[in-house]
Design a protein around this nucleic acid. Structure first.
Lengths: 191, 191, 191, 191
DNA sequence: GATGAATGAGCTTTCATTCAT
DNA sequence: GATGAATGAAAGCTCATTCAT
């Protein structure tokens, strides 16, 4: 369980899973990308599935950490929400591959993966949801909004917008997208 | 290519693909769900992939049709947008399985699927985007918003909110979710 | 067992078996070539294999008949042998497809097919062999030759020469080939 | 691609292909004959077809090599021809299975197999043909013979005679057959 | 620990055959 | 008799996993 051995596997796995999805990715291909032999992967992860789950956990941990850090830096709820959006987008920007894996395998088919991961999913949603509820208590967030739905919607909006850009976009201007998302999520589309 | 024969296959396939995803779904299982033999599937669809693509096409067609119809009934842009959100949510409500398939397989891993489908994907986004642009021209939609990103964000918000409810929710109140989404997407979270 | 029904099946089967071989030929394709439905084939032949065997029997019957007729017309052994070569070549010329089927499926893998067919194979060889033996008795055929081997060799020489021309030849001059074969088989290559 | 691993596969494949033909032979059966698992075959040959083609190539290479060697040892054209017949027969004697495969699959249905193999087929014929032409130039081979046809006929005579003996013969006397074939091919049947 | 050849369960797909219409 | 949709056995091939080196 040497950590220096695990790192290249981790990165290679991320790339291959992102490209092919869980089922079509082969352990062999991951090993080749990592420049090691197939057996070595099994010395570090019990199975392909366990490797995948480790990826997911680690990724969600990083996402939560990044978002928490940025959110903690701000004082008002609205600033915190902006920071959250910005942090999520920037995380997806940095880990494009992971973004694909996350949206397609986990949010898409939540029940396929272990409880363990589902808890993590809910964990991240909870963070958003709590922020919204605190905002409603303070009177800066609209009280009409049902917070669980809104939390999911925010995640979905940022995630799909980001993903759309990776997959299809002719040009990708990070700042323009960030600005649009902030504006959109805080104030809606209506003038 | 009897249509009465294709219908049960279609439905069974939708269910199984939604449950397992494309790769883990087996043709055998789809056949069993449809109460027919494996070979019969191949009498109606050339391959597992073709069956899947037929599902996607048909689904996107229905989604576009449902949305177009509702949108056309309204006069102002804001009403049209509300109608769009409502139609998309209600479509996902009616075709829960399809919602899962769409978000996980297609938006998640767009490039894995044929051009043919990508065009359809873009098609639906375009509808939203054009509505937004017309709104900006009329002055009812905020001009700061970059429309392509916003269109993706709207789709993602509605989709993930709906999906979240199917997969995790303890209670599912359609009207509450719809109201929340409309409020959120039109006016944002800020009070 | 209508004979008028069987004829088109027979012809279509011959063509398809010759093109694809027994295993790769499909009953469906034969039916399509014959302009009838698949089920109709099974009304006339119990199985694909039975159809194939019927083809072989019929073919060998015709070959034997054609050869016997020509051989019977001649008086001397050497004339009879010439007639045999000529009749076999001209039969292969007329039934090219059959020639392919015969050489590849039957002589190639004799034991794969039923006794029934093996008897027919031996039957035709026997005809040649008996002619040779009568010739040896009369003193016009070289006595050093072991007749069973020679019979097979004659059949093989004519068959492969004919087949080679169908499959590869740039130009196909029937008379030139016939003349060469006669000369070769009767007098050998040596001057 | 360990050569020691490929050898048993090669031998098992030869046996099974000879017994069943290409289409009816199953990879599983070949594996069982070789005493290994199905997957191991695919570690060594990309597909069943590739395995078969490898067999053909290797076989034709060996045949050509054996024949060339024997032919080169002789000085006169007639001796070379005798050597060729003898070498071909003895090759077929040694590799009975290969003889069956070659005659049934390749000469029988030449067009089904790749160019690659067709070139090899033509290659071997060419060798015979050139020998005949040189003989005609020297005046020891009858000038009336069209050499392409004759080459095919020689191959067919030796091949079918050999095959006939493997498949049907009650007794198999190599020397008697060889003597008969030499006599027959050089001087014909006529006394 | 690292390797990669060997394994065999499990998948997609084909197609001879049946049988209700 | 003719039809062709339905069937499911059987085949080729992939790939996660194991394990001897």
């Amino acid at each position: 369980m040497n950590e220096t051995r695990r790192m290249p596997i981790f990165n290679a796995a991320m790339k291959v899973f992102a490209e092919k999805g869980f089922a079509r990715a082969t352990v062999n291909e991951i090993a080749k990308h990592a420049g090691i032999a197939k057996g070595t992967i099994y010395n570090n992860y019990k199975s392909k599935k366990k490797l995948f789950l480790a990826l997911l956990e680690e990724g969600i941990d990083r996402l939560e950490a990044a978002v928490s850090r940025e959110v903690a830096r701000k004082d008002t709820i609205l600033d915190k929400l902006e920071a959250l959006i910005s942090a999520q987008l920037s995380f997806f920007e940095e880990y494009r591959d992971y973004c694909k894996v996350l949206l397609s395998e986990v949010w898409g088919l939540g029940h396929r993966w272990e409880e363990q991961v589902q808890r993590l999913q809910l964990g991240y949603f909870q963070t958003i949801q709590e922020l919204l509820e605190k905002g409603q208590a303070e009177g800066v967030i609209c009280r009409d909004l049902e917070t669980e739905t809104t939390a999911a919607a925010i995640f979905g909006a940022v995630g799909v917008a980001a993903l759309n850009r990776f997959v299809f976009a002719r040009e990708y201007k990070y700042n323009r997208i960030l600005q649009t998302l902030k504006q959109f999520l805080l104030n809606g589309v209506a003038k």
